[in-house]
Write a protein that binds this DNA or RNA. Sequence first.
DNA 1: GCCACAGTTTCGATATTAGAACCGTAAGTT
DNA 2: AACTTACGGTTCTAATATCGAAACTGTGGC
Lengths: 240, 240
Amino acid sequence: MASSPNAAPAPASQTLSRGIRMLELLAEANGPRTIAQLAQDLGVHRSIAYRILRTLEDHRLVTRDESGRVHAAPGLAVLARGVQRDLQSAALPELTVLANELKMCAFIAVWDQPDCTTLVTVEPRHVHATVVQHPGTRHPFGHGAPGIAMQSTLTEGQWNALKNETPYRDNAALARRKGYATSIDEVIPGLSSVAAPIEVPGRLPAAVAVVYSSGSNSSDVDAIGARLREAARAIEAELG
Amino acid sequence: MASSPNAAPAPASQTLSRGIRMLELLAEANGPRTIAQLAQDLGVHRSIAYRILRTLEDHRLVTRDESGRVHAAPGLAVLARGVQRDLQSAALPELTVLANELKMCAFIAVWDQPDCTTLVTVEPRHVHATVVQHPGTRHPFGHGAPGIAMQSTLTEGQWNALKNETPYRDNAALARRKGYATSIDEVIPGLSSVAAPIEVPGRLPAAVAVVYSSGSNSSDVDAIGARLREAARAIEAELG
DNA sequence: GCCACAGTTTCGATATTAGAACCGTAAGTT
DNA sequence: AACTTACGGTTCTAATATCGAAACTGTGGC
């Protein structure tokens, strides 16, 4: 173990935590918020909400419009660009081909503690149905094909680290044998997904997946699974 | 004016600013960084870098691998999702059609203080050339078609607010007349772009654009511009 | 055994916090 | 018009976090 034997609870920074919390509040809310709302939600006096705000503004993480309401700003997109940058670059072309070939929304999801977070998505050309799988979408690890696919690749150590937080899906064993996982109506009713794990030594688990309406051509799930494995292997090669 | 007459310089939070700075450093760097590196780049003692790190880790904005190196984490993607969420949703389908129709990388850029930042991108199917226009890419406002397109829509007030920071492009006047802007080899040598402004009252300027290799079919730029205006109008309607 | 490095602890010296008081402006009210 | 209420924004105070630096513990490599 790399950590000390007598590990301490570890204190965290109040100010920084509150600043981040404000960003989280803005991301959760659909639109802009007033300072009063933010201060109240943070459980903090208005004067300190102002200081936090000014700091976030300096870094271009938020902006204020004429009427003083607070918006999330493009600086956040810049920060997000650094998340698994090589994976994003390696996967994007594959996803594009996948989406247009299968006529389904294709995406990359990554292991994110007790959740599974979508990083990049690509939709096919002629879309009518709105996509539900925007980047930044987070759902519990343990639900949905991407999570199951990742579970099937976990090492003993990684598994033990979170076995208390999420139920074991026996589908993981099946997924391990077949090389891909499936789920129906798990995360969002009416939607099914298929996912293949992306495994690169020394890198956190990830998965490439597609979603489709549960009613439609669920005919050859095996073909889709095989195609996804192929894509996963191509991405792995790119990362090698 | 809404601000007090005797406006003060306004203090900002040291801790929060340093925390954000750490995130910026991680986004700038391609790969993971050691704590020692981060501490040095921040100009802080290691012990405080640890505290900042722990806080960021609690919010899932960074992770540490077995060897202790620090990575940007998926939580950042979640925060970025809140940036102009409605614009992103409204534009994505349009971008997809655009990319496949024109066989060019299509994207949305937004006004970001002295810069212009890419928010969403879509590439066409069969891609060989790697795309340079990932989300989160930032280039100076005042260079490139998207920036010029946005300039052509600025109100007097918005313009005065930044006229000292960026040169006036006389192409903006041309862009205003034609309804779209063009640029060749401005941001990246060898790449040209065409952009149309997205104007919605009470919203910061944005633009829809495409990039292509300067050498290729630059034949009918007018047709592309017209198509982009059409797309821009569709997006505006969606936001109405 | 020595060195480098991840990580923690402690403590005087600095930032930051939580209030409340205060200034303007914009919208209602009577 | 004068009165109130509401809101964005700043300034001041003690009380409370956080900083910076050095000392200290494990682990792993040469």
